[in-house]
Design a protein around this nucleic acid. Structure first.
Length: 480
DNA sequence: CATTTCGGGTGT
DNA sequence: ACACCCGAA
């Protein structure tokens, strides 16, 4: 659990920006005739029409939900437009969505520290930008407030019957007697509205946003009014917001921990947590998680927005469900080669574009063992130093798999004849690259890592293709 | 063992 | 290093 020092007097301006049904928007930008139609993105479509992973708001009106099957969606709404995720090397290829996410990040990073939280979400620390605006052009003195900002939802703002909602927002932003925190959030409203308009103009994507004094509240708010809207959480409305909020709505509490709070402690809402002394929460959930929970109940979260525009790892994986389980070593090798090819390509792009090098290769697999003493044993993950070059990565990944398989099946494996094996099947495979670090500053070439090879030789092989097939880049661990 | 494919994080 | 949890399209 994140344990950053909490400040009850937290006056930061934090925004969480969340793209609306992002994969759908990416596909609709590629095929503009789909705009405005009920649309969903499906992964594969051979088995029951594929799995829905993103659903447009028009399609949601028909009751179409994520995790439905394509065929099921067609039953509920025959006119729904189903777009398939691109396939490359026999697996889903998400690169188009990753690249679209990068477009958005590069825009949102203009006004403050920016953290890429996922493929379609970012946190922004706009404190400095808000303080600056307050100092030399405060919203209280502005003639006109942008229309996009006036569409903001401000939690706790009284919209009496018959009152003009936009006028209320305008008044809230203009208030001279507001405390410093509300004035900072008013600046946040304007900055985020402008950023969202820039994102729309430059990428054609809409997004929603939450603006609050910390990451937890900003994240909570960004999901409250979608699509294409923004929501503000003034300090004074925090208690009222959390008091009746179901515990599972809080990030990190949507899983087992949230269930445990409900079942074991009788905590149904965030407000219910307030009754428990910090020590009680600590003895039940540990020092870190206990304190974290105590703070959450009070709307306190000191987590910083990390300045990080790039992912910390790259992974490529595929599942082989049901009868598709891989039952021979050569079949596993074939798919590992496909996964490693994709991973290698992405590592080369990262090297070219961001001058970063990954240091660790990890293989994950899931397997079943039908008739065996411990058929519920898990296939172990294995990792090793990462060597660049597609063939090297494929070789290393296969060796990791074989090491894991020997452990998994035990000394007396189930090999029968040739390469056919009985008693086990691989239901998922994934390879990932982590411990990614920038090449030391001042170095824009990787030539120095080819010990024994001349720089001039390297300078003739900068293309990704050469690097993919020829390079034998191997970093001594700890050399960066 | 038919959501799948990611990515981030903590505990040991 | 490895197991397990969390959440999002």
């Amino acid at each position: 659990m994140p344990v950053a020092k909490p400040e009850s007097s937290d006056s930061r301006v934090i925004a969480h920006v969340d793209m609306d049904c992002f994969y759908v928007q990416v596909e609709q930008r590629k095929q503009p005739q789909l705009r405005g139609l009920p649309t969903a993105v499906v992964q594969y479509n051979e088995w029951k029409g594929g799995a829905l992973i993103a659903v447009s708001y028009e399609a949601r009106k028909f009751g179409i939900k994520r995790s439905m099957r394509g065929e099921e969606a067609k039953e509920v709404c025959p006119q729904v437009q189903l777009v398939q995720v691109p396939v490359a090397r026999g697996k889903a290829d998400l690169s188009g969505y990753r690249n679209a996410g990068s477009e958005v990040v590069s825009i949102l990073a203009r006004r403050g520290r920016c953290e890429r939280a996922s493929i379609d979400e970012v946190y922004l620390d706009l404190t400095d930008a808000a303080e600056m605006m307050l100092a030399d052009n405060p919203p209280q003195g502005m003639e006109t407030i942008d229309e996009e900002a006036l569409k903001s939802h401000i939690l706790g703002l009284n919209n009496e019957d018959g009152s003009d909602v936009k006028e209320n927002v305008r008044n809230w932003i203009h208030r001279h007697n507001a405390d410093h925190r509300d004035k900072l959030l008013a600046c946040g409203i304007l900055i985020v509205a402008e950023l969202r308009m820039q994102v729309l103009k430059e990428t054609e994507f809409t997004c929603s946003a939450g603006i609050a004094h910390n990451k937890m509240l900003a994240k909570l708010a960004s999901g409250m009014n979608k699509p294409a809207q923004q929501t503000v959480v003034p300090f004074s409305s925090v208690k009222g917001l959390l008091d009746t909020l179901p515990i599972r709505k809080m990030k990190q509490l949507g899983g087992k921990l949230g269930i445990s709070l409900q079942m074991d402690m009788g905590v149904n809402t965030v407000g219910d947590l307030l009754q428990f002394p910090e020590e009680k929460l600590q003895e039940r959930y540990g020092i870190n998680t206990g304190t974290w929970l105590w703070n959450i109940a009070r709307g306190i979260s000191g987590e910083e927005v990390e300045g990080r525009l790039l992912p910390k790892s790259h992974g490529s994986g595929k599942t082989f469900p049901g009868p598709r389980a891989l039952k021979t070593v050569p079949a596993v090798q074939h798919w590992l080669n496909q996964l490693c090819e994709e991973l290698s390509e992405r590592l080369c792009s990262d090297l070219d574009q961001n001058k970063r090098i990954a240091h660790t290769l990890t293989l994950h697999a899931r397997a079943y063992k039908s008739s065996d003493s411990d058929s519920q044993k898990k296939f172990p993950s294995k990792s090793c130093p990462l060597r660049y070059g597609t063939a090297k990565i494929q070789e290393d990944a296969f060796n990791l798999f074989q090491a894991g398989l020997r452990e998994y099946i035990g000394f007396y494996g189930g090999k029968t004849r040739g390469s056919h094996c009985r008693g086990w099947g691989i239901t998922s495979l994934s390879v990932s690259a982590s411990k990614i670090v920038p090449i030391p500053s001042g170095t824009c070439s990787i030539a120095k890592y080819f010990h024994g090879q001349s720089t001039s030789h390297f300078s003739s092989m900068q293309s990704s293709d050469n690097l993919n097939t020829e390079a034998t880049l191997s970093l001594p661990s700890g050399s960066i």
